[in-house]
Every structure is written in C-alpha cells, then in structure tokens.
Amino acid sequence: MTKRHSQKYKIDRRMGENIWGRPKSPINARPYGPGQHGQRRKGKLSDFGMQLMAKQKLKGYYGNITEKQFSRIYAEAQRRRGNTAELLIGLLESRLDAVVYRAKFVPTVFAARQFVNHGHVKVNGRKVNIPSYVCKPGDVIEVRDRSRSMALVLEALQSPERDVPDYIDLDPKAMKATYARIPEFAEVPYPVKMEPNLVVEFYSS
C-alpha cells in the first residue's frame, strides 16, 4: 500500500487550483503555493513545464497513485488502439477506487482507496480489496452489508457536494452501483480543467 507523506491539500496549493472542488481546500483562503517561497511571483511555464503540471495534476487527482503506477496506466493506454488521451482517462476512471468515489460511497478519492483496502467493497458479489482493480462495463460494485451503517458512507451519499455521473448507475438505498460504461473525457466531472493531451505530449517527448 502506498502512502502519501506530504499533506494531500498541498497539491491544491502547488497547482494553484482546487483540484477536487472541496469547500475546505486551503487554496480557497491561500491562493499561493506552499512553503516559505510560495508567494513569489511565478514565471511563465515552458511547454515542458505545462506538460509536467498537467501530468502531476491528473495523477494527483486520483489520490495515492505512484509515478510507476501512473506511467504503467499510460503505457496501457498507448498500447491500445484509439485516442491515447481518451483511453488514459477511461483507464483511470475504471479503477475500483475511482468508481467507489464516483458512486459517492465515500467523500474523497483518498478515502476510496482506504475503503477498498479495508475490505468494505464487493464487485459482482465478491469482496475485492485492490484499489487498482479494473472495473468492466456491467460490473456491480456494492458496499458490503456490515459496512453500510458506517457514518462515512451515509454522510457521503447524502452530501450535495458532488453529483453521480451518467456512466455510473447508482441505487443509493441498496448501496449498489453499476459501472455502465467507460466514459469519454468530456463526461468526467473534473472540478478543474484537465489536459490529458498534454500528458500524452509529456510522455511522448
């Protein structure tokens, strides 16, 4: 299991954006980078700098994905036939922890990873505790019976902070979600602008 050693919301401040769209993000109050040099005026980014920023933002959005894991996902997207940027987003959104987050079973992507790791989720009736498990269209993801009374789950499902996207069919009472289809990039409800085309350029350069 990977562990984020730095505070997760430092990513927001480093990027200068509230990448998860959460009300308590520190970027809402301190719109500058972390650390003693955070308030220095930033110079114009080079093309490489913009590509790197796009990659770091997309990778950071999905929580504790390591550089090695992310580059492996990119390599798989590149291997498949089609638009690499679209395929990359589709693979990221097909991760079990991402589906659990999109279904609003938990409040954050970080909580989704832990929730899956701790064995609270079933896929097609079987317990799966691997956050990187790749869901396929038609897979049914549900909260295990013994976990359905957890305050974390109940509060997340009732939260108005996020909407469930169209490619997830949710039955909130049964705490079941069907991964209906692999989404296109335009369907994914990112709170900020993501640029997977720049990520492709980063790995291609």
Results as ranks from 00 to 15, higher is better:
2 T>V: 15
4 R>P: 12
6 S>N: 10
6 S>R: 15
7 Q>T: 03
8 K>H: 14
9 Y>T: 10
9 Y>E: 11
12 D>F: 03
13 R>M: 09
15 M>L: 14
18 N>P: 14
19 I>H: 10
19 I>E: 05
21 G>H: 03
22 R>G: 09
25 S>M: 10
27 I>H: 04
29 A>L: 15
31 P>Y: 08
32 Y>N: 02
32 Y>W: 15
35 G>Y: 08
38 G>R: 04
41 R>C: 03
42 K>V: 12
44 K>N: 09
45 L>Q: 11
47 D>W: 02
48 F>C: 00
50 M>I: 14
52 L>V: 12
55 K>R: 12
56 Q>K: 09
56 Q>R: 12
56 Q>G: 06
58 L>G: 02
60 G>I: 04
62 Y>I: 04
64 N>H: 08
66 T>Y: 09
67 E>P: 14
68 K>S: 14
69 Q>T: 13
70 F>T: 03
72 R>Y: 04
73 I>R: 09
76 E>G: 08
77 A>C: 09
81 R>C: 11
85 A>K: 08
88 L>A: 04
88 L>P: 03
92 L>P: 14
93 E>H: 06
94 S>Q: 08
100 V>I: 07
101 Y>M: 08
102 R>N: 06
102 R>Q: 13
105 F>R: 00
107 P>N: 08
107 P>G: 01
108 T>P: 14
108 T>F: 06
114 Q>T: 11
115 F>Y: 05
115 F>N: 00
117 N>Y: 04
117 N>F: 01
118 H>E: 12
119 G>E: 05
119 G>W: 01
123 V>P: 00
125 G>F: 12
126 R>S: 11
128 V>L: 11
128 V>G: 07
128 V>A: 07
129 N>Y: 11
130 I>Q: 10
132 S>D: 14
132 S>E: 12
133 Y>H: 14
135 C>K: 02
138 G>N: 07
140 V>T: 13
140 V>E: 13
143 V>N: 00
143 V>L: 07
144 R>F: 00
145 D>P: 02
146 R>Q: 10
146 R>P: 00
147 S>C: 02
147 S>K: 05
154 L>F: 03
155 E>A: 02
158 Q>K: 15
158 Q>D: 11
159 S>G: 09
160 P>W: 03
163 D>T: 14
164 V>W: 04
168 I>Q: 01
169 D>T: 09
172 P>G: 09
172 P>S: 07
172 P>F: 01
173 K>P: 14
173 K>L: 08
175 M>E: 00
176 K>Q: 10
177 A>H: 03
181 R>I: 00
182 I>L: 13
182 I>P: 10
183 P>A: 12
184 E>V: 02
189 P>S: 10
193 K>E: 15
197 N>L: 08
204 S>K: 14
